[in-house]
Design a protein around this nucleic acid. Structure first.
Lengths: 191, 191
DNA sequence: CTTTAAAGCTAAGCCACTTAGCCAACGTTG
DNA sequence: CAACGTTGGCTAAGTGGCTTAGCTTTAAAG
C-alpha cells in the first residue's frame, strides 16, 4: 500500500476544513479518514483520538481567530478598533462555522501553543479596552462582557436563534454600538 | 415483569434531573433507562428517540426559564426589572447546568408548547425593554443584545472560560449594569 | 544491502442509538 | 369473573461511532 504521507498538521488542517463543511458536531474520525484516503485507525498514528483532535482543532482555530482580531484592531483605537475587532470576530464565526465552536474549548495548560493562542485572543480585547481607559479589574469585567456579547450573538445566530425578520447585521452593529457606549461610561470600580 | 408505570412526563422529568447531574452532553438513553429501572428500548414507548427527548427537555427547560424570568421581573421596572431578570436567568443556568443548554434548541414549530415557551421567554425580555421606552426594531435589536450578553456570559462561565481570579458575580453585575446604561441611551433607529 | 522506525492495514471490542418482534400486565367490557 | 385488546415492558439484532492490538510494508538511515 502506497503511503499517503500524513502528519499531525495535515490531519488537523483537513479536520478544520471538514468541520466547516459539515459542522463541528458532525466532524467524525470516519469521515475525516475517508476524506484523507486512509482507514480510520491510521489516524491514530497522528492524533491520540477524537478528543485530542478536537483540542488540536481548538488550537488552530483560536490562533486564527486571535490573529484576525489583532489584525483588525491594529492601527485603530476606541470605537473604531472595537467595531473592526467585532466585525472580524463575527466574520470568522460566519466563515468558519465548524472551527468557531472549537475555539470555545478552554485552553489546555499542558499545550503551550494553546495557552499562547488564548492569551493572544484575550490580549487583543484587552488592548482595545485600554483605548477606553479601562485597566485592572475594570478591564477584566469589560473583557468578560465583550466576550459574552460577541460569543453569545454569534452562537445564537449560528443556532438560528434569531427568529424575527429584523436584519441580523443591523442588530449586531447596534450591539457593538451599545458596547461602545458602555465602555465609554463603564461603571468604574477603580480596580 | 412488574410494570414501572412510566409516561412521557416522568421520563422527561427524570432526564432533566439526570442532565443536571451529569451534564447535557452526557445525558444518555442508557443511563436514563437504568435510572428509571427499565431496559433501554423500553424508553421508545414514551419518546421517539434521543433527539425527541432532547427536544422535550428543551420545552421543559425553556418553560421553566421563562417562568422564572417572568416571575423575577413582575412588579418591577427599568433597571430594577433588568437586574432581577438577569439574576434569574443566570441563577437558572447555574442551578440547572444540564437543562440550560437544552434551552438553546430552536423551538420546533410543530410543537405548540415549545413555541409558546419560547415566546414567553422572549416576551419577558421584551416587556422589560418596554420599560426603557424601546419598541419596534429597537426592541428587537435590544432583545438580541440582551439575550446575547446573558447567554454568552453563562455559557462561558459554565465552560470555565473565565480564567482570571476576578470574582465572577461581580463581573456579571457589571455586565448587567452596562446593559442598563446601554438601554437608557440605546442608539435609536426609530423602527 | 540491511536494518529499523513508523505509517499504513485488518480484526475485534466497546458503547451509543435504533428497530423488530415477542410477551405479559392491566383496564375494559360483557 | 373471564375474555380481550392495548400497551408497556422485554430480548435480539443491526448500525455507526471510537479505540486498541498486532501485523505488514514502506522508506529512510546506516
Amino acid at each position: 500500500m502506497p503511503r499517503v504521507g500524513l502528519n499531525q498538521q495535515t490531519v488537523v488542517r483537513e479536520a478544520a476544513r471538514l468541520a466547516d463543511e459539515v459542522g463541528f458536531q458532525q466532524l467524525t474520525l470516519a469521515a475525516l479518514a475517508s476524506r484523507l484516503g486512509v482507514a480510520l485507525p491510521s489516524l491514530y498514528k497522528h492524533v491520540r483520538g477524537a478528543d485530542a483532535l478536537a483540542q488540536k482543532l481548538a488550537v488552530l482555530a483560536t490562533a486564527e481567530l486571535a490573529t484576525e482580531m489583532t489584525t483588525a484592531a491594529v492601527g485603530r483605537s476606541g470605537g473604531d478598533a472595537l467595531r473592526a475587532m467585532a466585525d472580524a470576530y463575527r466574520g470568522y464565526a460566519l466563515r468558519h462555522p465548524g472551527r468557531y465552536p472549537a475555539t470555545q474549548r478552554v485552553p489546555d495548560p499542558a499545550d503551550p501553543e494553546h495557552v499562547e493562542a488564548g492569551e493572544r485572543a484575550v490580549g487583543a480585547i484587552f488592548a482595545v479596552l485600554r483605548g477606553y481607559g479601562l485597566t485592572g479589574d475594570d478591564a477584566v469585567d469589560a473583557t468578560r462582557a465583550l466576550r459574552s456579547a460577541l460569543h453569545g450573538f454569534v452562537t445564537l445566530e449560528a443556532a438560528g436563534g434569531f427568529g424575527l425578520p429584523r436584519d441580523i447585521d443591523r442588530s449586531y452593529h447596534q450591539l457593538v454600538a451599545s458596547m461602545d457606549i458602555s465602555f465609554r461610561s463603564w461603571p468604574r470600580t477603580g480596580g
